[in-house]
């Protein structure tokens, strides 16, 4: 087998290229074109909407706090704790999220429902649920790990710039105060709540066989 070689010649530079002057003028032409177009757009206020037409010719800056790009539904924002219908957190304090968390920014103190509560035994609940948003790397593992759809990152909120570290420690009440982008505190995955009348099932009192 013989090796086949293909010689690629360096493109020859013409005198015009080498004199540089012509190329400078060409370059200036390009930038001037953009300059006048951009100026005309900005002065007339008639520029493409950078949010809706991101690929259109012209000034493409999104003036962030005033204009915002709509976030994808799966965009990971600040966490929220979803509510049950009765307003209590869905979280059962299983610690799966804090286990999955690579930044170890979640602290949960589980507690148990009292003896006469219908939910006792089925679920525990977080007495404390704290996320250190400064430590959080917004990887979304906690959301993936959650078996109850109790923690979600669909608030569409950025982590705000706050002026002290303590303000970044979000507690349960704070995390439960954020609605989703759809402005709901619930989750999209309803479930039977233990103790509900609607809860189907057989037990020693009901049914049997």
């Amino acid at each position: 087998m013989t090796a086949t070689t293909k010689i690629i010649r360096k493109p020859a530079r013409t005198l015009a290229d080498q004199s540089y002057l012509l190329e400078v003028v060409k370059g200036l032409g390009v930038t001037l074109k953009h300059f006048f177009k951009g100026t005309a757009q900005l002065v007339s206020g008639n520029r493409p909407d950078p949010v809706k037409e991101p690929y259109a010719e012209g000034v493409a800056t999104i003036e962030y706090p005033d204009e915002k790009r709509p976030y994808a539904r799966r965009w990971r924002g600040v966490h929220r704790l979803t509510h049950r219908e009765d307003g209590s957190p869905r979280c059962v304090a299983c610690l799966c999220c804090s286990t999955a968390c690579p930044a170890q920014c979640i602290y949960i103190k589980p507690a148990e429902y009292p003896l006469d509560d219908a939910r006792r035994g089925y679920e525990r609940y977080p007495e404390e649920f704290v996320i250190d948003e400064l430590r959080c790397i917004f990887c979304g593992f906690c959301v993936e790990a959650c078996p109850c759809d109790a923690i979600r990152m669909d608030t569409g909120l950025h982590m705000t710039a706050l002026d002290n570290r303590a303000s970044f420690i979000f507690d349960k009440a704070m995390l439960m105060s954020f609605p989703s982008q759809d402005n709901t505190f619930l989750s999209e995955n309803p479930r039977h709540e233990p103790g509900d009348e609607s809860h189907p099932g057989i037990d020693r009192v009901r049914g049997g066989h």
């Binding site: 006792r120 189907p200 037990d203």
Partner: peptide
């Protein structure tokens, strides 16, 4: 089917 339910968290 719904599983059988029995006492839970009994001390």
């Amino acid at each position: 089917d719904e599983p059988v339910h029995k006492p839970k968290a009994q001390p």
